[in-house]
């Protein structure tokens, strides 16, 4: 029904008219967005609003990564899915929702998930990466692959009534390993499946991640690089804290990096973190 969003046709102008009017974004911001490609890793509580808002806003090409299927216990927070998609792959469900909202964009499904073997090849195809996963090894894998391919990373997390959000590997800011050179000991970790999460909490963090991704892709504003946003939903308190810069000693992004696009596939993220690349895995421990 709708012509391609990549030309400044009548449908493009009508669809994005309200955004074209925003002074510091405007026509040039919208055009940059329509020429950009963003990868979202995880189609769960965070990935739901991220993919909806990035599709709606007119990102030219969206990559969606997840290897899980939709379950009833997802639907209290994963609002991009519906009951009709229970049992179907999350990437198919999310892609269909994104295209129903905006048929003028391109959506690519990466239904086998991200691992050390494919991360560099997949991430290379995009301009900005959004970490919306739910486990520790994925967070190290995605950060390392973004450093190796020089992509900015928008990383969010939510659990219980709290959320955290930052932008890594951008300008002089840190990567995930600069902040967390050593993974937390297995006995200290908490997971949504054990500790729960109020559905709207990843909703708040995810919409904020979408904002950061839009700013990175269209090149306006100040992002959360070298800053972290902390949300306490119980009291509706939001802290903005100042983080260290890039560490010269960082294993991934330092002056003598140990990880590169060429050798990343050899790194054993599951052994490093003593955890599996999937939240429900048997190796993961609870607090």
């Amino acid at each position: 029904v709708f012509s391609s969003g990549h030309s400044m046709g009548a449908d493009f102008i009508r669809r994005y008219s309200r955004q074209l009017l925003v002074p510091s974004f405007g026509v040039s911001g919208q055009k940059k967005l329509s020429e950009s490609a963003i990868l979202i890793v995880g189609m769960g509580g965070l990935g739901s609003p991220i993919s909806s808002y990035l599709a709606a806003s007119g990102v030219g090409r969206l990559g969606l990564v997840d290897s899980d299927v939709v379950e009833l216990s997802n639907l209290h927070r994963q609002i991009i899915h519906t009951e009709a998609f229970i049992g179907q792959p999350k990437v198919s469900s999310a892609a269909s929702a994104c295209l129903a909202l905006n048929s003028s964009i391109l959506v690519k499904e990466h239904g086998r998930g991200l691992n050390a073997a494919n991360a560099v090849e997949i991430i290379s195809q995009y301009d900005v990466v959004v970490d919306a996963t739910d486990n520790i090894p994925s967070r190290y894998l995605i950060s390392d692959a973004c450093v190796a391919t020089a992509k900015p990373l928008v990383s969010g997390a939510a659990l219980g009534l709290e959320g955290q959000l930052s932008v890594y590997n951008h300008k002089s800011g840190p990567c995930y390993r600069c902040l967390f050179p050593v993974p937390p000991p297995p006995g200290t970790r908490q997971r949504c499946s054990d500790n729960g999460v109020l559905g709207v909490v990843p909703g708040i963090i995810g919409t904020l991640q979408a904002l950061e991704a839009i700013k990175l892709a269209s090149g306006f504003g100040e992002t959360l690089s070298s800053r972290m946003l902390l949300l306490d939903a119980f009291s509706t308190r939001i802290h903005m804290v100042k983080l260290r810069g890039r560490s010269p000693n960082c294993f991934a992004c330092g002056d003598a990096p140990q990880i590169s696009a060429a050798n990343l596939h050899e790194f054993d993220y599951e052994r490093f973190t003593e955890s599996t690349l999937s939240e429900e895995g048997p190796k993961a421990q609870e607090l």
């Binding site: 509580g45 486990n135 955290q164 937390p184 999460v197």
Partner: peptide
């Protein structure tokens, strides 16, 4: 003192 979260 804040523990890093991993959930999503």
């Amino acid at each position: 003192f804040i523990s890093t979260l991993h959930g999503g």
